[in-house]
Structures are given as structure tokens and as C-alpha cells.
């Protein structure tokens, strides 16, 4: 590779080392397990790698990768195979401090019941704290549709049988 390509490769690797965990967090909430989250982020990085040098800074590139993660997730075709491979067995049976593991199992099951777009909207709105307009831009859908998905997704989670026994955070 030319020197510029080597520099680009090093920069890209540093970007991933510094920001990859955050990308994985979003992907984990969308997919519900380590393996698929990793797969989703790898796919998004593979799609966007060639744009790294063209982006003026890592912040913009991260936004670009996140958009690609969400769009890939929404359009991804492995939904049925993921359902059949749901790694519930991976979650420890014993409760960790704060009951996070029990909540994780229940909330993942509740999230599983949501259509893909609703899950993506909820993750963008309530974990990435993105306003409606930005969510609409990321997912390529009208703002009204974002609000609709958000409202229905929240209602579905609140009413989910999987969360009936969970105490909500005050």
C-alpha cells in the first residue's frame, strides 16, 4: 500500500479502538447479543471504511458509521435466523448486583417483540438521545413516522408481559 493508505489504515484502526465500544453498545441494543452486534458493526465498518479519509474528523465519521449501523440493521435479512439463535442461555442465571441480568433478559425479550424499525427508533431516541428530526434523517423516514414508531415502541415495552415483574427505575 502507499504511505497514505498506511496512514489511513492506522487512523482507521485508532478510530475503531477509541470509538468501537460505543458503536458496539448501539449494535448490542439492536441485536441483543455480542456476536450479532459485532457482526453488525463489522458490516457497517466494511461499508464505510472507504470514506474514512474523506471525512474531516472522527466525530463526523462516527455519525456516518452509526447511521450505517442503523440502516443496515433495519434492512438486514437475517432476522429469522437470529430469532432461532437467540442466546438466552448465555445470560447468567444468577442475579448480578442491581438485578441488571434479570432486567437484561426481560428487556431483551420485550425488545425482541418489537418490529425492527421500532427497536431502532427507541435505541436512537432513548440511548443515543437523538431528536426526532435526526432520527428521521438517520433512518431515512419521515419525522411523523419516527414519532409513531417511538410512541408504539414505548407503549409496547411498557405493556410487555416480559417486563410485568420488573421495577422501573424512578
Amino acid at each position: 500500500m502507499t504511505e497514505s493508505l498506511v496512514d489511513e489504515a492506522v487512523g482507521f484502526e485508532q478510530f475503531v479502538a477509541e470509538r468501537g465500544r460505543g458503536l458496539l453498545r448501539a449494535a448490542w441494543l439492536l441485536t441483543g447479543d455480542h456476536h450479532h452486534a459485532e457482526d453488525l458493526v463489522q458490516t457497517a465498518l466494511a461499508k464505510t471504511w472507504g470514506r474514512y479519509a474523506a471525512m474531516s474528523n472522527d466525530h463526523k465519521f462516527e455519525a456516518y458509521v452509526r447511521t450505517t449501523i442503523y440502516r443496515t440493521y433495519v434492512s438486514w435479512w437475517r432476522r429469522m435466523s437470529w430469532r432461532s439463535e437467540r442466546p438466552h442461555d448465555d445470560v447468567p442465571d444468577t442475579e448480578a448486583a442491581g438485578g441488571a441480568d434479570a432486567l437484561r433478559v426481560d428487556l431483551l425479550r420485550a425488545l425482541d417483540g418489537l418490529p425492527r424499525m421500532q427497536r431502532a427508533v427507541l435505541t436512537l431516541r432513548f440511548v443515543d438521545d437523538m431528536p426526532t428530526a435526526e432520527v428521521a434523517h438517520v433512518l431515512g423516514i419521515p419525522e411523523g413516522t419516527v414519532k409513531s414508531h417511538s410512541h408504539r415502541g414505548c407503549a409496547a415495552l411498557r405493556g410487555s408481559v416480559h417486563l410485568a415483574g420488573q421495577e422501573v427505575t424512578p
Binding site: E13, V16, G20, R21, L23, H34, E38, Q42, A100, L107
Partner: peptide, 21 residues
């Protein structure tokens, strides 16, 4: 918002992202 944030594991590692990508 809080519950979604709470359930994300702490041990997510970006170590294999670059090679996989």
C-alpha cells in the same frame, strides 16, 4: 432510557472489529 442503558454489558470489546470489517 435508563433501563436500556443499564442492560448493555460492560465487556463489549472492539478488539475484533477491524479484522472482521
Amino acid at each position: 432510557s435508563d433501563n436500556l442503558r443499564r442492560i448493555v454489558p460492560d465487556d463489549l470489546s472492539p478488539a475484533r472489529l477491524v479484522d472482521g470489517a
